Simulated scan of single mutants.
Amino acid sequence: MMIMNEKIKAAEVELTGLDGESLGVVSRDEALAMAKKLKVDLVCTSLMSSPPPCRLIGRGAAKEAQQKEKRAAGGGAPAKVKELRLTPHIEEHDYETKQRQAEKLLASGHAVQLVVKTGSAKESAAAKALLERLLKDLAPAGSGESGIQVSGKGAQVKVNPQ
């Protein structure tokens, strides 16, 4: 959590200049005036000491650093789930193409939702068999999150990257 400019509530701050030079303890208002004059941000680096240490940082650089920190801490956004649709009676080269697509997506950190649409409930056994084969072939790249879900008009399974 980064506190900037007017959000800093301390009466006095220990100020560090743009080039890392110590400017000593100054009043909050004086530090803010200096930041405004230099067209930079005043950023509080820690709330654990009194007076709190603050730095003058170029406009936008502080926000960028904060976003970078957030990305590093949170590991970024959760991986998106990409959906690949298949049919139960798939030709061999089409199957290989779908398998390569799924491997590429898993390698780039995305989860893959494999969906087999069927015309009737009779074809759902073929759909399940197809997904089982695909899961086995994708084992080096990812693993099924849960079992294969079979419904009246198809089957699906979510595969997470290794």
Rank of each mutant, 00 (worst) to 15 (best):
K9H: 12
E12V: 12
E12F: 10
E14P: 02
G17C: 04
D19K: 11
D19I: 06
E21I: 14
E21M: 15
S22K: 13
G24H: 07
R28G: 04
A31C: 03
A33F: 08
M34G: 06
K36F: 09
L38R: 09
K39P: 00
D41F: 03
T45G: 03
T45Y: 01
M48D: 08
M48E: 14
P51M: 01
P52D: 01
R55N: 09
L56R: 00
L56Y: 02
L56K: 01
I57K: 00
G58R: 14
G60D: 00
A61K: 05
K63Q: 06
E64I: 08
E64D: 09
E64Y: 08
A65L: 05
A65I: 03
Q66A: 06
Q66K: 11
Q67P: 02
E69L: 15
E69G: 07
A73C: 06
G76N: 00
A77V: 12
K80Q: 11
K80I: 12
E83L: 06
L86T: 01
T87K: 09
T87W: 04
P88K: 00
I90K: 06
K98A: 12
Q99V: 14
R100G: 05
R100L: 10
R100A: 09
E103M: 11
E103S: 11
L105H: 07
G109W: 06
G109Q: 03
G109A: 02
V112A: 01
Q113K: 15
Q113Y: 09
L114H: 02
L114I: 07
V115M: 06
V115P: 00
G119W: 09
G119S: 11
A121L: 12
K128V: 14
K128G: 13
L130T: 09
L130A: 10
L131Q: 08
L135S: 15
L138Q: 10
A139Q: 09
A141W: 08
S143D: 08
E145G: 13
E145A: 15
S146H: 08
S146G: 12
I148C: 00
I148E: 05
A155N: 04
A155E: 08
A155C: 03
